[in-house]
Design a protein around this nucleic acid. Structure first.
Lengths: 337, 337
DNA sequence: GAAATTAATGTAAACTCTTACAGTGAAGAG
DNA sequence: CTCTTCACTGTAAGAGTTTACATTAATTTC
């Protein structure tokens, strides 16, 4: 592969001149610049990322840590949506994204932080289920510019989907349709789950509705088996709820199947709602009532904040940015009397 | 950041010795090795990727080019599934993956190949809609190790979902249920589409079933609006089909909505099937009949083949690997008489 | 006990790039 | 005619690592 040296030899100028010519420095004559450019093209010159990074200590690389229960979060619609928009945004600004290796099967793997330092990423974005993991904490507490999604760390930038308001809005909507016996299958303990529970109770409290404890049950996210089982239990209660809220759109499918299997109609007999706004689910009749999380905005804001933190660390405000979701009414919440 | 030099100073040995000690060379005494290791840990030493890459000309980096119509293919369930499994597999072997920048909005962006050469990726995996794009061709024809997914290039490794057999199987299944008037809304021209069309006609031909031309219509992939419209047209024909096959599971939703809107029942009046096996869709009642593409296997095979090509270029067989899908019967194809 | 072997360590170059600084020659100033 | 300025180009260091080869000391061989 052609290097600056090859070009310099061919052009009869020094390596420094070539470098400056290609990087548009002003102290190079137009003539030289054009000649260098031409030869560079002829030789099929490609700059060498590693050499440049070594010298400048900048990689224009961003590390991505998206981990869900199973693997890398790529098949997780919400994460995928966020990542997709994050990616487009940073790429526009000339950054590349590399996944932080989170394989557990490697013989002597690096920790997340080690991996980040090794690659010299300019910054890191993190979205995952388990923010409590020591390795994640180690990374967040390091001096690498970092933005987290849906979880707040002390003194770090976080982009948050507004789960409190979202869940309040969804619950309010159910109440406005006449529901008082609302069950909530929520996810396992996490920042997100806590926020949504807060929103849920905020709505019911305000309307003076008391939700029996047995209506509020933890299940896993995106686990149709879990919601199926728990839904069955709810339906068999003497004091059956009229409305069931699920951790997410996907897990709602498990619940809906249980409801139908028990011979109930949706929404005439039992109303349901999900959370996320996954098109593959909400585009099907009867359209699932849900809160659409603004993955586009979340990814974009995360990207812009991170780049700002990288490029202007002094003036970037460390804050939690909250991105509202929006209620998609759908057709799975019935009006009751 | 601590470097080899810092360790060498601290230990009173040469930089070379430190390097060898850390890299497990055999010509270093155990005592020295342990001492170096210890000091390295104390100083929080992290190897420098760029320096290493510069010297060795190896990055253990793999470039990923996943482009769909809209963006990066991350929100495309099939691609996401393939990528997820690809990622896990290469990460196990110590490779990292970076997206090849495909932003069109960048001022003076590099071509795909330039970007790959710049980063010095050891290999590249490509899955995209538009394999005809000159930039893609340039990349594929270069001397970078490459594996393509669902598209065959001369003399290059390709991993193919078995679309011919899959579509044959699906069509056969419909025929076995008594359907003769089968419409097929297929995707826009592409390797995948062609293969599936081949499979479709192979099945109908074998059974001596003639499909009217107006039953076979091009729509886009993952476009519910398109399938909605075309389904409407089909339903309004005097000679209405009894069964409609869709380009993919997601676009089938548009068709199903049209069918219901016209007052037909699924599958009693009109049978439908999709393609892909997207759980968010197939896990809902009535379960959509589809072909599940083995994304796990496709990603894994692509990864293994690519790594083999990188590490043992001489002995790696250049071939097209075909991965079969599997029929998921579901409940949207009815038996008719 | 000299020669040969082995084990451990060191030397130095190279990979490619950027950049602070130095140098050159020409033009302009006085 | 000297001095300064300007426009351009060159020199050289250094970023952190790997590795072929050289060196040294200790051990074995006959």
């Amino acid at each position: 592969m052609a290097s600056l040296k090859d070009i310099s030899r061919q052009c009869g100028v020094s390596v420094a001149t070539v470098s400056k010519a290609l990087n548009n420095h002003t102290d190079i004559s137009e003539e030289t610049r054009d000649r260098v450019r031409k030869v560079a093209k002829e030789l099929g010159y490609s700059p060498n990322f590693s050499a440049r990074a070594l010298k400048t200590n900048r990689t224009h690389g961003i590390g991505v840590l998206f981990v869900d229960e199973a693997r890398s979060g790529l098949t997780h619609d919400y994460f995928a949506g966020v990542l997709d928009s994050f990616k487009s945004t940073v790429e526009e600004k000339g950054y590349d994204i590399t996944f932080i290796n989170c394989s557990t099967k490697q013989p002597n793997r690096m920790t997340f932080l080690e991996h980040v330092k090794y690659h010299g990423f300019d910054g890191v974005v993190i979205a995952c289920i388990d923010f409590e993991a020591p390795e994640v904490a180690e990374l967040v507490q390091s001096d690498v510019p970092v933005v987290t999604i849906d979880h707040v760390f002390n003194n770090k930038i976080a982009i948050m989907s507004d789960n409190i308001t979202g869940m309040t809005e969804l619950t309010d909507y159910c109440i406005s349709k006449g529901h008082k016996k609302i069950a909530y299958l929520h996810g396992e303990p996490s920042t997100v789950t806590t926020a949504r529970l807060t929103g849920f109770y905020r709505a019911t409290d305000k309307k003076g509705i008391t939700i029996p404890d047995e209506y509020v049950v933890a299940t896993k996210y995106r686990d149709t088996v879990g919601t199926y089982k728990e839904t069955m239990k709810l339906l068999k209660m003497k004091n059956r709820p009229t409305c069931i809220l699920y951790p997410d759109d996907f897990s709602a499918l498990g619940g809906m199947n249980a409801i139908r299997e028990m011979g109930f109609r949706i929404p005439e007999d039992i109303s349901v709602a999900g959370y996320d706004g996954i098109k593959a689910i909400t585009d099907r009749e009867p359209q699932l009532t849900t809160i659409i999380q603004a993955t586009d905005q979340i990814g974009e804001r995360a990207a812009k904040k991170l780049i700002s933190l990288i490029e202007k660390p002094k003036t970037t405000i460390i804050e939690q940015v909250v991105i509202p979701g929006s209620l998609q009414e759908g057709k799975t919440i019935a009006r009751i009397v």
